[in-house]
Amino acid sequence: MAARLSVARAARQLTSSAARRPATAYPVSCQRWQKAPIQSRLFTVSAQWEEKKYTEDHEWVELSADGKTATLGISTYAAKALGDIVFCELPQVGVEFSSGDAIGAVESVKSASDILTPISGEVVEVNSALEEVPGGINKDPEGEGWIAKIAVQAEPEGLMSAEEYKKHTEEA
């Protein structure tokens, strides 16, 4: 299993870098040549990312339809456990984070909880509505209560599917 995943990862890295290089150097002539790798890249990406993924620290990430950005938020389980969120510290747009970094924090019932990003990349958008209504996270943590969008550089590892995450929270 692990071996297969790493092969797939290597293949993805190859195809994505191959796709990027000619795009700048030979924008026109390589278009046809480019097509196949892009398709295979989308296929492997969507196989990994067709559903929302979860972290051990109770964040969720979801890839956009074009595969360029990932939306990040905190899970319904976490939002319930934390209680009424009274303040949300959002990251700044344009700042680059590495996976595992705290990109923000929420405060609820005297607790400041770090929001950790499982993906590296630049923050391209934040949910500014949360500055006015931090409780929006409690209302719809995995929808309207999203926290930030990040430009995806590489696929994250070690994330859980919804089912695996459910199991993880039941064990805890």
Binding site: E56, D57, V109, K110, S111, A112, S113, D114, L116
Partner: peptide, 8 residues
């Protein structure tokens, strides 16, 4: 009391 939660 006050609390801080991070990384498990």
């Amino acid at each position: 009391s006050a609390y801080k939660l991070t990384r498990g």
